[in-house]
Each structure stands twice: as structure tokens, then as C-alpha cells.
Design a protein around this nucleic acid. Structure first.
Length: 261
DNA sequence: ATGGTAGCGCTGCTA
């Protein structure tokens, strides 16, 4: 099963690129973030015509998350189990079962500046993600959380850690929240297969020619349970999708698991 | 030089 995650930065602005990418790469499941549309504006037909079922959670022009799947799409759940965090006018998480795998598509709050209410909310949101996971799944299940975490797990996951002194995305508290997901039983798929590689970035600022200068961050992650880790055959960022006219500022992350193994 | 770009929607916010 090929699973991809992509922060598309507006699905309406990016639909052509996204459908072209699907046709080229043939993912079984694509998890999207920042669709930036309400459910009524979600272009379900564009995915259905390619053979995919769709589930979308969007309630404004901000955020918005989706799952499109050609291997089944059942038990769709928008927001968190307790609905305390995600339903305060936001749409940052949707989960569903696809081909026997429980999948989350998450758009973790950015956090803006360290110590702000937005930052505290980001930490709380990540705690709710763990609580939701623990209430819904067991570590021995086939389960994965994919999306834009807005956290770089290690210093080598940003192009120049000196630029991030006192900044969000790299603080101990944010990284500890991701570590707690791993302590529950998830593993960072890219790191499993590429333990020694640096510059495995998934996001580059639109400004300053960051992409071509190699000024990126690895903030889009696929965290998968051990039963999936044991069947993991591929994990990589498709940097080509960041090139050319009108790209998203994020590139897709693709993993493959051999579920017959 | 405290910059730059993109998307939202129409004024400035968010990232």
C-alpha cells in the first residue's frame, strides 16, 4: 500500500497539480492538509473520477484536512474523539480506515511565537492527538498519523539551527510532544529507512528562493505503528513536486508498506 | 536592508 501526505496550501489553487501528481504516482491513499475550503467546496468529483473515495473536514477558508482512498474509506471521524480542541472553529484532523489501516490526516497548529497562546494551544493540541490515538487504537494495530506537524524533530531537520534560536518548530516542548506519540508506539517512517541522511526537508518558504537555496525544514511526518514499520519498504519526500509553476510550499511525503508480507 | 512570497478575499492576517 502506497500512502502519501501533502500539505497542498489551498486545494482550489492546487487541484490541477494534485490530480496530476496522483495520476503519476498512483497512491492508494492521499492525506491532505490546508485544503482551505469548506466541505461544500471540496472538489470530490475530481478525485472520484480517478477512482478515489473522499472524506473532507473543512469549515472555513482556513486549515481543512482530507483523505482520498482507492482501497476503502470507512469509519470516518472528523475532529478529535472528545471534540474539545478541534471544533473551536478549526478543522485540523480527520481519520478513517483504509484497507485495514487506521489513518489520521493532521494539520498541527503553527504556534506562531514561543510562549504565545497559539504556542500553548499547539502543545495542548498535540496532547489531544495522543489522547485521541490512545482512546481509539492499540499500538499493535495498523495505524499511522500523517501530516504537517509543524515540528522539526531534530536539529538536523532544519537547514540552519542557528536561525531558529527561540523559535517555534524546534523547541523541546514541541519535540517532546512528538516523542510521546513515539513512546506510545509510533515510529518516524522516514527516519527508520534514512537514519543517517540530513536535509530530508518537506517544506521551504516561498520567500527568498528558499527551495533553490536548500533552506528547508522537515515538518511533514508519517508516524506509523510497529506492525506497519515491519512492512515498510519505502519512505521519501517527493521534492520534484515542489518545482515548477505555482507549487505548494510543501512537498508530498510517500511511504510504502507491503501488507502481504 | 529587520527584507522576502503566496493564499485568503478585499483589509490585513496567516504561514
Amino acid at each position: 500500500m502506497k500512502i502519501a501526505t501533502w500539505n497542498v496550501n489551498s486545494l482550489r489553487a492546487r487541484l490541477g497539480r494534485v490530480t496530476e501528481w496522483i495520476e503519476l504516482h498512483q497512491p492508494d491513499v492521499l492525506l491532505m492538509q490546508e485544503t482551505k475550503c469548506k466541505d461544500a467546496a471540496f472538489p470530490a468529483e475530481a478525485f472520484q473520477s480517478l477512482g478515489y473515495e473522499t472524506a473532507h473536514h473543512g469549515i472555513s477558508q482556513w486549515n481543512g484536512v482530507a483523505i482520498v482512498s482507492r482501497v476503502g474509506l470507512t469509519d470516518i471521524r472528523s475532529a478529535f474523539f472528545d471534540e474539545q480542541i478541534d471544533e473551536v472553529g478549526e478543522a485540523r484532523v480527520i481519520s478513517a480506515t483504509c484497507g485495514g489501516v487506521r489513518l489520521y490526516s493532521v494539520y498541527v497548529p503553527n504556534g506562531r511565537t514561543v510562549g504565545s497562546e497559539h504556542y500553548e494551544r499547539k502543545l495542548l493540541w498535540l496532547d489531544h492527538l495522543l489522547a485521541d490515538l490512545a482512546a481509539s487504537c492499540k499500538p499493535e494495530d495498523r495505524v499511522g498519523i500523517f501530516g504537517d506537524f509543524n515540528v522539526a524533530p531534530e536539529d538536523r531537520d532544519v537547514w540552519d539551527i542557528a536561525q531558529f534560536d527561540g523559535a517555534t518548530h524546534v523547541t523541546e516542548a514541541e519535540r517532546a510532544a512528538v516523542t510521546r506519540l513515539c513512546e506510545w508506539g509510533l515510529r518516524d517512517a522516514v527516519r527508520l529507512l534514512h537514519p543517517d541522511e540530513d536535509a530530508l526537508y518537506s517544506w521551504w518558504d516561498y520567500r527568498s528562493g528558499s527551495f533553490h537555496r536548500g533552506w528547508g525544514m522537515r515538518i511533514d511526518l508519517g508516524l506509523i505503528s510497529v506492525p506497519l514499520c515491519e512492512r515498510l519498504t519505502f519512505a521519501a519526500v517527493d521534492r520534484e513536486a515542489r518545482r515548477g509553476p505555482s507549487p505548494s510550499d510543501h512537498a508530498p511525503l510517500v511511504i510504502e508498506v507491503d501488507l502481504a508480507r
